[in-house]
Write a protein that binds this DNA or RNA. Structure first.
Lengths: 215, 215
DNA sequence: CCTACCGATCGGTAGG
DNA sequence: CCTACCGATCGGTAGG
């Protein structure tokens, strides 16, 4: 490992499969296994509540091992946000992109999101709703990473609306950013109410409100 | 508002020290001074991030002093939720009750809430939005207290919608619980986006969406 | 990846 | 309300 800023490189590279000394490869496998726990722990305890010691215990690993894999706590938090972003993309974005652009894609997107929240893909409900509330008031790289992920998500929804307008499915008078704001607010409202009260009823309310917006 | 706590009456009293149980009176004064800090600390750091030591430092008091005033950390958290509830009521509910029942009251309620969030009555934005996201996944008395406060709020909004229906301002086909859900989701969505990105633009989006719902 | 250890802070108690 | 103190846990380092 001498001279190689391993932890930094890993932040931007997932698949470093073949290396001569083998340690990097095992590191990647370990990283992925630990990340699965980290992402769920953080969705319940928060990104600040995600402690190195607790993560080590849940991963059957020593604290030193976690530190060796991820570096500082802030680097661990950033890796966790990135892992959550990837899981969110696979679960929500990918199914929507498989549907034809227009109203069909928008409806698929909404259903995929509601399903993602209701199925508790993250143990504590939507990871990013929790991270937004927690980090919104705490300036720094972690907040910036969460904000960037939320910007991407909002832009994706607004883009899907624009495509629906282009396809003639929605009126040209619709403001994509405005509609995206409303859809996201209703989705997040359902997630928050469902997690707090442990009911699925809010998902019906969100579905009903959004279907009025997407005629 | 009949159940006004006696603590608030001391505000206008000059000579509290002359009461026979002098320690209790000084305790009440201290409690309210500390609570002002606690509520803001918790809105930024979260209810779990609200530590006895940090609160003591911000209050120019010893840790032992905080413990003597509030007891365990859980009791401190419960007192903080209750103090936040009172401040929310004064800031949002009271102005709405001063307006005539019906659409006018509903619009006043929405404006009071948006103003409450934008003015950062709590340092970290809406206290209850943060508390909902944080405690929703952590069963216990504190989560129950947050959920009860949110239930009261939702019922109040739904009640205001029902009054507007009764007054003939809204169609009798409107479902008060559904409309309350949508209004609250849009308000919370504006709060979350504003805190995360440090913009006021989301408030305009919420205003525009809600005014479509309240014709 | 481990053990062993560091200073700081956590919630809470004892005694005044 | 204070000081003094408790065991546990925090993030992180050293050395292997």
């Amino acid at each position: 490992m001498e001279g190689m800023p391993t932890a930094q490189l890993h932040d931007t590279m997932d698949d470093v499969a073949t290396l001569e000394d083998g340690r990097r490869v095992r590191g990647d496998v370990s990283r992925r296994a630990v990340m699965e726990r980290a992402v769920n722990l953080a969705s319940v305890e928060g990104l600040d509540g995600l402690s190195i010691g607790a993560l080590a215990a849940e991963s059957a690993m020593s604290k030193g091992g976690i530190v060796a894999l991820f570096g500082t706590k802030e680097q661990l938090q950033l890796a966790t946000v990135e892992a959550a972003r990837q899981l969110f993309t696979e679960t929500v974005i990918t199914p929507a992109l498989a549907a034809p652009a227009g109203l069909t894609r928008l409806r698929t997107l909404v259903e995929a999101w509601l399903d993602y929240s209701e199925r508790r893909v993250f143990q504590g409900g939507c990871f990013f709703a929790a991270a937004t509330a927690e980090m919104g008031t705490k300036p720094g790289p972690v907040r910036d990473a969460v904000a960037a992920a939320m910007d991407d998500w909002r832009d994706f929804v607004a883009g899907a609306v624009q495509r629906a307008i282009d396809a003639g499915d929605l009126s040209a008078t619709v403001d994509p950013d405005q509609l995206a704001f409303e859809i996201i607010a209703l989705l997040d409202g359902a997630n928050a109410a469902s997690v707090l009260r442990d009911t699925v009823e809010p998902y019906s309310r969100a579905r009903s409100a959004i279907s009025r917006l997407l005629p």
